[in-house]
Amino acid sequence: MEILIYIFAILSVLFAINMLIQKKMINVALSLLGCMVSIAVLFIYLYATFVGMLQLIVYAGSVMVLFLIIITLLDPFGKIKYTFTSRLWTFFVSIIGLIFGLLLYVIYGSEKKVEAINSSHFSIKALSDRLFTIYLLPFEVISILILVGIIGSIYFGKKNLTDGDEDENNA
């Protein structure tokens, strides 16, 4: 079983890199899907079954479907292609390398090691217990955030924002 975690960890990184170097949008989306699924497997392996399933359902499932719909709407024949200049590449690789090095230094350099949290925290019962007691307010307030997002997408997405009044005048 130990070997599985390494396989999926490496797979998730490879998919992530592939996502960056692919030229067609559909391939980028599929690589993202591969990355999400590999991470979900890692969660499940760490006994965080619920988080793993959420990752599969929400990200690999619904979010991916949205991505695919948008791609088919915007670019049905796969005409849009990305071009990466070598300067851009060096820029990205150096930034990512910098952050990665910093993280390695921080995680291995700190005296207090991060301990694994008891896996019983991850059960659905424990999760819902917390969600509806301690974290009730943030959970409810997020609805405002979503509402604001909806207002924004309607506001920017609608072609004509006219009032009934104006339509009558035009007609």
Partner: peptide, 19 residues
């Protein structure tokens, strides 16, 4: 009084100001 609350507040504010 909680970082998650602060973050949600910040996001509500930011999302509204983006629009």
């Amino acid at each position: 009084a909680n970082l998650i609350m602060t973050f949600i507040g910040l996001e509500i504010l930011s999302m509204s100001t983006y629009i």
